[in-house]
Design a protein around this nucleic acid. Structure first.
Length: 154
DNA sequence: GCCAACGTTGGC
DNA sequence: GCCAACGTTGGC
């Protein structure tokens, strides 16, 4: 049994929030159109991996809760849909370009852990989030995960 | 709304 | 294969 890995995934809560995931229980993480993020989902993420659900492009941004990978990567069908904002004509059913995992709701933190607090917390200095801010799917260490969860649960 | 950082595209 | 132009992300 391979060990669990930890991740952080960003979503704009106006589009899809932790509450939306709580209501739906599970969701495909569609719309990722960045190769590095895709490669992490397609090649690295396993069922059972744990995900920090990050709310971006809101004030303040921050970690809103926890999800878990419940289905390994499979082709993202929104790439094939001409009406989707995520449409990519270069992705075909024969040669899918974009992949997604499915995640299930685990918990919503009683309070968001805001980005400014992450920046000033010892032990998080090397987080990808704080150093390569644009990557929307990124690895998190077990240590970083534990620190953030402790803050989120209050 | 601005804009810095950074990813992608395409001409050469 | 380089790199300028362009587009997007996302914090502020």
């Amino acid at each position: 049994m391979p060990s669990v890995s930890y991740w952080l995934m960003k979503s704009e809560p106006d589009v899809f929030s932790i509450r939306d995931l709580e209501k739906k229980k599970t969701s495909s993480w569609d719309g990722v159109r960045n190769y590095q993020a895709r490669n992490l989902m397609r090649d690295e993420m396993k069922v059972g991996d744990v995900v920090l659900f990050y709310h971006s492009s809101v004030s303040p941004p921050g970690v809103a809760g926890i999800a878990r990978v419940c289905r390994q990567a499979h082709p993202d069908p929104t790439a094939w849909d001409p009406k989707s904002p995520y449409h990519d004509p270069k992705s075909t059913r024969q040669a899918p370009r974009w992949f997604m995992v499915d995640v299930e709701f685990v918990e919503k933190f009683p309070q968001l852990v805001p980005l400014p607090l992450l920046r000033e917390t010892k032990g998080l200095e090397n987080m990808v989030l704080l150093n390569r801010s644009r990557l929307s799917v990124q690895p998190v260490t077990r240590r970083e995960f534990d620190i953030i969860v402790r803050m989120g649960r209050g």
